[in-house]
Design a protein around this nucleic acid. Sequence first.
RNA 1: GUCCCCAUCGUCUAGUACGGCCUAGGACAUCGCCCUUUCAAGGCGGUAACACGGGUUCAAAUCCCGUUGGGGACGCCA
Length: 470
Amino acid sequence: MSEKVRVRFAPSPTGYLHLGGARTALFNWLFARHNKGTFILRIEDTDRTRSTEEYIETIIDSLKWLGLDWDEGPYRQMDRFDIYKHYAEKLLNDGKAYYCYCSPDELEKRRKEALKQGKLPKYDGRCKILKDPIPGRVPAIRFIMPQDGKTIVDDLIRGKVVFENSQLDDLIIMRSDGTPTYNFTVVVDDVEMRITHVIRGDDHLNNTPKQLHIYSAFGYEIPAFAHLPMILGPDKTRLSKRHGATSVTSYRDMGYLADAFINYIVRLGWAHGDQEIFSRNELIELFSLEDVGKSHAVFNREKLLWLNSQYIMKTSTEKLMELVMPFLVREKIITEGQILDKKWLSKAVETLKERSRTLLELAHSLHFYIAEEIVFDKKAKEKFLNERYLPFLKDIKNELEKLEIFVAPNIEKVFKEIVEKYNTKLGNIAQPVRVAITGKTESPGIFEVIEIIGREKTLKRLEKAIKTIV
RNA sequence: GUCCCCAUCGUCUAGUACGGCCUAGGACAUCGCCCUUUCAAGGCGGUAACACGGGUUCAAAUCCCGUUGGGGACGCCA
């Protein structure tokens, strides 16, 4: 390919950006970046009744969050209606298209009838031979499809796919309200925008022969095609709202990191040997359509979570603090505008880094550090805040009160002394204290925790725990 | 109904193009052990797959045919 690579992501704003769309965008973006080409964003909003500005915004938000930046666009097909009209008229003049006066209702009826009889539900072409317009009706425009021979789609991922032209029917390219339709606008735009590689979902493979005939009606060169296998839900059907969270923004809101999300979806259909974790630059360097698989993939939340935890562990504490802030506010762990001491927070976050799979979990775990008071988990309380452990709690409280320099190593010494005094195991002392301080039976190392929480709150919480026992 | 696509552990996949290096490798999940103040993290180990049936061949996960299963498309949606 002598021409510079030009690819596009062309979502329709009739819904938010979902996982599958995000992966299509990602593969296009990676292909463009790998080949030092151009990545174009084009909004396919020809369906005026279902497209909304809100969806355009969330799609753009999602792409930005994922860091998939585009070099051209966003173009909007709505702004280009004159162009499509012009192209449609050309086809009309060349006798390659005709006016169709059938109403959507009639068409729908005939289609259902055909399906019921087990026949191909295709348009019978009755308006093609029509001499005069049908009065009182505004026509749509149909493109004439050949009925003989075969059409071969040479796909970069699937190889040569053969379609019988007899399967094709005359396709509406302009609706009666004057708006153009998908199979027509993609071709016009891909030609006009000099797209070299059309990388899109598998669900478009069947549309490709139709589009190929439109290319040839205009005498245009065809781009290369690459149809990506779909991503399915756990029940192996097309991903939809039924499968719970599928929108990209919902993953952001659940506390996933953009890089982890990218890393997860790139591995749905693409692999580079046994490698699991890739930096952006590695992806750009390594990505190739040849390594894209043919079979569909099933979304698996557990692996995404694992990847996210891996990314959280290697994210700098500084960055993590920044990222977790909105979650702290949203979860009402801090109030809007509340300032936390940076150095202190960084110590707290540090202890939680390898225990949090999402930013949301991190925010929740931060609660016991930040809150003034904590509540004891019921089971934890029953098990550890009782007579048996009371003397330990009292001793720990007394000793910590006297401790001069309130840092983890010294706190550890206090614990060790009491372990010795009672000739018991550390666990017997650490666990009740942990429950007293954090409310739960799991937490980061207790000496660290105590240091970070500080003397005042520690003593207060120990006192409260002791009071619940006596 | 017709057409198209796909088929390796539960899931993501390596291996398939150039058939032998595959008694099929990795990762997530799961189970066990180690580490250990708890929970994680980390380390070690286990369970677990070439859909089936025919060919071709000295040799097939890899090539061919069929079956089955799954998915997708058949719109004045994209």
